[in-house]
Amino acid sequence: MKVLVAIKRVVDFAVKIRVKADHSGVETDHVKMSINPFDEIAIEEAIRLKEKGIAGEIVVVSIGPQATQETIRHALALGADRGIHVEIEEPPEPLTVAKILKAITNREQPQLLMLGKQAIDDDCNQVAQMVSALLDWPQATFVSCLTIENGRCQAAREVDGGLETLIMALPAVVSADLRLNTPRYPTLPNIMKSKQKPLEQLSASSLGIHAVPHTKILQVTEPVSRRSGVKVSSWEEFIPILKKVMSCAF
């Protein structure tokens, strides 16, 4: 079974971001970039499926500027077999990403398409759902436990009320939530080996995708920040505050 994993290069989760002075976006130049943490979980799951003998080849695809190849190399160092880089200069909207991933999926014919549930930069949480719609494949989003047996996949989803379980026939789309697994670190020998793994470069237009904007970002601003309050010296000072909020309870 071939697994395709889609990943995104984002501002590292530990970076304190800065809004550009002209309010056109968030500063991404000279900022540490990393693989989107949820996508790293998706790759880890694909690698575990391979280690269990369930998955065969793992292909990783990423869409973005030239530097995106560093992120693909990271995925190859973790254990993916082959990379595809779809070059695009401007950050694409989720719908465009989904269209590109559909084209790659049709080309690669995987049985399972895995993605992180959301990217931590735009926080959209859309691509997995969109690409499964375009492919007409079933979707399991926010997955924290995945088992694959006899061409079927059982997925436990983290929903607001608890854990929901779905069974889907493959091919299917799965988006990874935090507790699906804990990703490994790449070892030095694997980092060396990853440099030899195949990495194909494509352009969106060669796939027949021409991004038509559906939205326009008018401005990006900083939120009003909370002012830090006071430190009290004794817990007893909390009592009147609690009493005030809870006045109906006392």
């Binding site: 909207e93 959209c124 859309q126 759902q129 719609a133 929903v159 607001d160 559906h214 939205t215």
Partner: peptide, 21 residues
């Protein structure tokens, strides 16, 4: 919610529109 986030992007893609989250 997890309900809306699961559903609306799928619908938007079928309609060929962007979803705003």
């Amino acid at each position: 919610t997890t309900f809306g986030k699961n559903l609306l992007p799928r619908l938007a893609a079928k309609l060929d529109v962007m979803q705003i989250s």
